[in-house]
Write a protein that binds this DNA or RNA. Structure first.
Lengths: 339, 339
DNA sequence: AAGAACTACGAAAACGGTTTCGTGTTAATA
DNA sequence: TATTAACACGAAACCGTTTTCGTAGTTCTT
């Protein structure tokens, strides 16, 4: 087992000082050609690579960025991670992923672990627990320590930091507008409980579109599911109760799942009932019929978040200028709506 | 902006030495009650937390584990990560995720970056590029340096290390067996090119099941798709050419996608053609009809991999004993096959 | 009263680098 | 020949911990 070689080893072997070795490997002008060549050759031969930890300690920069997300088995979040990875890797950063599992406590614990020197900055989406509790002290603490933070998708106004979101309201608005233009009269909304910033925004877009088009808002057409998993009975009861010709869902699973329940009732999609879902993910693409979806552009979101973060990390100036970048939600039309 | 406080700050403020502070915070017997209480109170007040990087340098242990996977936007891999996270976090480890993007070069670069002190061990699945190239020197190098390595799912015999896989051959075998028992006569296999260890294994299971049941292997019933994305024309041509009453696919996407093409041809699933796919993922669950699938138990796989790795990392003895743990692939029956 | 044994703490090395500054040797200059 | 500048390198501090070892000062022996 050949252990990693250090500057000290090289220095001892070549009978020079550690500083000379360090400088030689950085091709410093201070060191003579001969010595440099000798040292560099030796280093290459023994495949010397500087120890990241030592460099981190010295520089007070880890080149790691911490990503805290509610759930990793979730298409949207993985696309965001992909975007982050892509940008971060190109800049020489590694990505430490922590999952809060929608829990406030885990979010706090994870952030505290990472904040003690392991990372240069955070990119995160708030857990459900945190949004319910409305307790953002752990976020405020890291920003007060001067650790840059970028929030994406699930954000809050109560923390001053960079943010990147999509225009959820507009996305929902244009989806509903499309349904109305297609002649749909009874448009339902299937959503989560409203402590999620995104669901709230999407709900507003839905209502606004109805209002702007002279349709009155029927609260009975709005179904709030308490869990992220779909309860078949609740949805079926909803369909029994209300006559519906279109459905907007705040996520893919709600959409695909309720589309299936509708088909089981012998109704046709999109002829009898149209469907649109948020998140243009893998389910929408492979659903049958293909699900018209509002794309959240996760990968782009991740890239932008990473860019914002790295700018702050590497920026000398600690100007307290925070931006919120709003991406445009775009409609990806498939067979679940009529063109 | 309140900067992080260090031992040195506390020492200066309380007019004691750094060593005294360090010991006091560890509740050492060496330090008097009075001094300890004073120091601990001060530390708590200023929310002192030791710097992870400094500790890593001292201990030569980072409490980070590196995970290198081909693709993060892939249900199976994310479930594995979830399992790894779960186990690792419970043991106080963080997870650094790197994506090789199926590329040999990126895999090498990522591993080299992490191997220079950033992590205590690796968990990984080989990229397509690596499996094609059959070049495993980067893996051998890290193991030679004494860095523990656990391979999962996409493994190779050429590297001596711990491994965790599912019994792909048996999984495919039992799937085909089931199709035969259902009276299917012309069972197709849609697979990738065969440099993937898993595809090869699955193919063998398919052939074996046919042989064992007195059916002859018709190579024309095996379709190898060059890409991970499905080429509609290739699959349609295949269906035009061959009369088929059942299909086994080596992944979800192949299965769901070709199931859809079959339905577009006016055939019924499962009556006319049955489908079984590998990876019991989100697509299988929400497909219409639900796709009978061979579960790969990603989360469990991740947990086991993490456990194996952490055992090696924390084990004193560098016994060169390597285990390969084989999980049982189980069939998850849904509507795409007849019971 | 002198040595032994504690007690309670500090100095310093170590982890593996980077960087500033000092210095001996040689070469160029006056 | 004496002075100076350039060159090539080393010593040491530093990043923030941990840990070993040394040692004042006190208390306990006999």
């Amino acid at each position: 087992m050949k252990r990693k070689i250090t500057l000290k080893h090289i220095a001892r072997e070549l009978e020079v000082s550690i500083s000379t070795v360090s400088k030689a490997l950085k091709n410093s002008e201070e060191i003579s050609r001969d010595t440099k060549e000798k040292i560099q050759a030796f280093a290459k031969l023994y495949n010397y690579k500087p120890n990241n930890i030592a460099i981190s300690l010295k520089n007070k920069r880890t080149k790691n960025i911490g990503v805290v997300i509610p759930d990793i088995v979730h298409y949207f979040f993985t696309t965001v991670i992909r975007g982050i990875e892509k940008f971060a890797n190109a800049k020489g950063y590694n990505v430490i992923v922590c999952v809060s599992d929608e829990s406030f406590d885990k979010e706090v614990i994870n952030m505290e672990m990472l904040a003690n020197g392991s990372i240069d900055g955070f990119i995160m989406a708030l857990s459900a627990g945190t949004q319910q509790k409305k307790d953002y002290n752990h976020l405020k603490e890291v920003t007060e320590q001067g650790i840059p933070l970028v929030l994406f998708d699930r954000v809050t106004d109560e923390v001053q930091c960079d943010k990147v979101i999509i225009n959820d309201k507009e996305g929902a608005y244009s989806a509903v507008k499309k349904l109305i233009d297609n002649g749909r009269k009874r448009i339902a909304l299937i959503t989560t409980e409203d402590y999620f910033s995104v669901s709230r925004e999407r709900g507003e877009g839905y209502r606004q579109a109805l209002r702007d088009n002279g349709m009155k808002i029927d609260e009975d057409l709005i179904l709030e599911l308490p869990d992220m998993e779909v309860d078949d009975d609740a949805v079926n009861a909803f369909f029994d109760r209300e006559k519906i010709d279109a459905v907007l869902c705040v996520n893919e699973i709600f959409a695909v799942h309720s589309m299936r329940l509708i088909k089981k009732r012998g109704l046709k999609v999109p002829e009898d009932v149209s469907f649109i879902g948020f998140t243009d993910g893998i389910l929408s693409k492979y659903a049958n019929p293909g699900l018209t979806a509002i794309a959240q552009h996760g990968e782009q979101m991740g890239e932008i978040a990473a860019q914002m973060l790295i700018e702050k990390v590497e920026g000398e100036t600690d100007e307290e200028q925070f931006k919120t970048q709003v991406l445009k939600a775009t409609l990806m039309e498939r067979e679940s709506t009529i063109n």
